[in-house]
Simulated assay, not measured.
Amino acid sequence: MQTPRFLPCGDSALTVEFGSAIDPGLNGKVLALDSLLRANPPAGLIETVPTYRSLTLQFDPTTTDYDALIRLLEEATVGLQPQAAMGTRWRVPVVYGGEYGVDLDDVAERHGLAPSRLIELHSAAVYRIYMIGFIPGFAYLGGLDPRIATSRRTQPRLKVPCGSIMIGGEQAGIVPMEMPSGWHLLGRTPVLSYAPGRDPAFLFAAGDEIVFDPIDASRWNDLERAALAGEPVAEPVQA
């Protein structure tokens, strides 16, 4: 079993790195350590930030220091067992193709698939949210069917619409606000994964799961109005 690496991040943060791959087992260790520290926060801990394979700790250097936290973390990670994704499974409605997913046909052709088959493969998976990052609320998803994994675009777009459902390499993502991206746009959801005036502002969290529900474009306007009015559009479902 690989020994965790402890990496300094300036004078008020450090990272515990469990490996170098997109792997549920590594991410499970990240979630396990995150849960442990949240349940029993050491003195001086300000925030924890889980990622695919590492956990970053921000701390108050006037209360604790790097060496003290390393000693605590070395003990905490001995025999640490991966934690299963214990978050919410969300059903997210998606309009695929056309103006909502301008790259769908091109990605399907690249893989020798009919667009309808690409939609089937994309929406059949259960995606794990490995991390939230890049911009507020952006959900990095693992679990993409390898048959439709697609290298990123050579020319990124400067503006991708809020709610875009994208793939890039072996990853998938949900866009929380207009942003630049070189990923491929397969569809769009009216779900607002980030809404600053909402409580909570972030709908999804690391450890949650996503299943995509293909819907007809005729439903878009009603669902978008509901989402903007603060009504629930993504539904929690039983695993």
Rank of each mutant, 00 (worst) to 15 (best):
L57A: 03
E99S: 14
R38N: 01
S218H: 15
A234R: 01
L7E: 10
A201I: 04
N40S: 14
Y194M: 12
P61Y: 14
R153L: 15
D222F: 01
L31H: 00
G101R: 11
Q171Y: 13
G97N: 07
D67H: 15
R110F: 15
D208I: 06
T3C: 06
K29V: 02
Q81C: 02
A32N: 01
T77Q: 03
A43C: 05
P196S: 03
S35T: 00
L185P: 01
F204N: 02
G112S: 09
L73A: 10
Q81G: 01
R5T: 05
L203I: 05
T15W: 06
T77I: 07
L228Y: 08
T51S: 15
A76R: 14
D216S: 15
G207D: 08
A206Q: 09
S116H: 09
E235W: 04
V126H: 11
T3E: 15
I70F: 04
P136M: 11
H122V: 10
L26C: 10
Q238N: 13
D23G: 04
Q155A: 14
A76I: 01
P136Y: 05
N27V: 01
V126S: 12
F59G: 01
M1T: 14
L26R: 05
V233T: 10
E224V: 05
L118T: 12
S164G: 06
T77Y: 10
E47P: 00
T189Q: 06
S193C: 12
T154P: 03
I210P: 01
G142L: 09
L113T: 09
I165H: 06
K159N: 09
D106Q: 15
W90P: 03
D103T: 04
D199N: 12
A32R: 00
L14R: 02
D67R: 15
Q81W: 00
M177Q: 15
A227N: 09
T64F: 07
G230C: 12
E120M: 06
F134A: 07
A149E: 13
L223P: 04
L141D: 07
P4E: 13
R71A: 15
I148K: 10
L69F: 03
L26P: 14
D208S: 04
P8Y: 14
V49A: 05
S218C: 13
A76D: 02
T77C: 14
G143V: 04
V78S: 09
D213W: 02
E224A: 13
R147S: 15
P196W: 06
G97M: 02
L192N: 08
H122L: 05
E99G: 12
G143R: 07
R198I: 09
D60H: 13
T154L: 15
V94R: 01
P8M: 07
L73V: 06
T64H: 07
G143M: 11
Y130Q: 00
Q155I: 15
E231W: 09
A125D: 10
M86V: 08
G101P: 11
F202D: 09
Y140A: 07
R147G: 11
V95K: 08
R117D: 15
T189L: 11
E235I: 14
